[in-house]
Design a protein around this nucleic acid. Structure first.
Lengths: 264, 264
DNA sequence: CGCCACTTTGAAACAGTTCAACGTCAGTGG
DNA sequence: CCACTGACGTTGAACTGTTTCAAAGTGGCG
């Protein structure tokens, strides 16, 4: 991914259609609020103000760089559709994905509090996102303190997910780790209304999953075959179907407490 | 660690000395504010209110359980002295430490937003901590929105550190990972005034370090010898001395951006 | 039809683990 | 004051989960 491709993707891909914009904006905001404002603390005023603070809907192609590691963005992006990933590059060219972002996730929100990004953000699928200028967010949080609570909660959830990844990476075998990951991703996807009862959209390559789990592509492939063989889930054509939730949960030693009460 | 030992440690160890309390409270709060309020947004009023919200100073022995995994504490603890660790147990009895907490760290602050803890907190050394009741914190944040900003920033920093650990665990060799860890811990310790120019207090066992790095005790020992052999640092009698910062930084591919501008 | 990105397979190499033993040191009690 | 204890650090050798390298298979798409 070169600098030019980046520009191409972020600017040329913008779709200033006045018809689709409101729909995407609502989808993103609804998912955000549904996940993080379960106690209904947010006033209608605050929601309206947040909605008005939105910049123009932007579309990124799969593979596009949404923000660059070490850059200093003056806005944060709310995902309205698609899947994005935060990742860090290490010197030998390998990379580690530290988070996946789905609809309703405020990517880079922490950039509002620190001027240089410690990671990059890439679009794994085609991603539709809505920018919120930091200047506007600053004004908004002064006016509506309950919004800071919402944002704080978002960072808390981020950290909680990171911690579980640490546990899985540090003290689980590859199979358990992968099982844990699919449990988490299934619940997160379901919480924002992606997919139905036991299936969810998962348009990602094995190499990208490897970068998230801290494994090699080859090993991801083998572990995947093992879990498939155990009849835990199916994965194909960009969609995962959970076949044996109990067993998957068990293998991954998955305890959903840490997700809080996201979604339903 | 049994439930009884826990009670013993949390209650019997409390030292209600009216002489030492203010000193510890100030130490904890000063470190907290110094790390997270660099832009001096916090009003004197807010600081005073926070100070008044403090509960009685509590001392935990080394090894004591400060809060239990899956419990629902009604307060959060601010570390005023000593080192604590958040850790998760996995089924085979192993554990993964996900964070170390030094002076000025608000342990469990996120518990304010979710009722069950997804991890336990242990005192690694003798720890002096100050409890803040969630009820009081709730009132405080309504009255002083700038405090939420401070807490939010604290969660953001937590998450940033977690991410770097993920990168180190997932894509670095044990030696690099350990080098990275010592870089980070050195800067964090220095930021809150522990130790001098090139040394800092580090009263931890190799087994605990292993639990943090996701390695076996044996391997931690060997890697430690390797790094010592390279002349990167010394570690003994509860104190680490950095001998070759450049080389250590290099080996750990350490980029301190993610720590924000903590401390000085 | 042929290309390209992605998935799958096999075999050899390796980083890190496990097990089991021994060394060291500070504290404790006789 | 010395022997005993227990927690912690160190060592060696065998073992294993995962990586690496290299090649072949699959499938969607222009």
């Amino acid at each position: 991914m070169t600098a030019n491709q980046h520009l191409e993707n972020t600017t040329a891909q913008a779709r200033p259609s006045s018809i689709i914009e409101p729909a995407y904006l609502d989808r993103g905001l609804d998912a955000l609020v549904a996940r993080l404002d379960q106690n209904r603390e947010l006033t209608a005023d605050a929601k309206r103000a947040l909605r008005n603070a939105a910049g123009p809907v932007t579309v990124f192609d799969a593979g596009a760089e949404m923000s660059r590691q070490h850059s200093s963005p003056n806005h944060s992006l709310l995902v309205a559709a698609g899947t994005a990933a935060r990742s860090n590059l290490v010197e030998n060219g390998e990379r580690q994905i530290t988070a996946f972002h789905l609809v309703g996730d405020f990517v880079d929100l922490h950039a509002f509090h620190s001027d240089r990004l410690d990671h990059g953000v890439d679009a794994l699928t085609r991603v539709t996102a809505i920018p919120f200028a930091h200047a506007v967010l600053g004004r908004l949080t002064r006016e509506y303190p309950e919004l800071i609570q919402l944002f704080w909660r978002s960072s808390i959830l981020d950290a909680a997910i990171h911690r579980q990844w640490l546990v899985a990476m540090g003290r689980m075998t590859a199979s358990r780790h992968m099982a844990h990951f699919f449990c988490e991703h299934y619940l997160r996807a379901k919480a924002v209304g992606l997919g139905d009862e036991f299936s969810f959209a998962f348009e990602i390559t094995q190499a990208q999953l490897a970068d998230a789990l801290g494994l090699s592509t080859v090993h991801v492939n083998r572990v995947l075959q093992e879990l498939r063989g155990l009849g835990l889930f199916e994965w194909g054509h960009g969609s995962v179907t959970i076949l044996d939730w109990e067993a998957l949960r068990d293998l991954g030693q998955f305890d959903e407490t840490y997700l809080g009460a996201i979604g339903n």
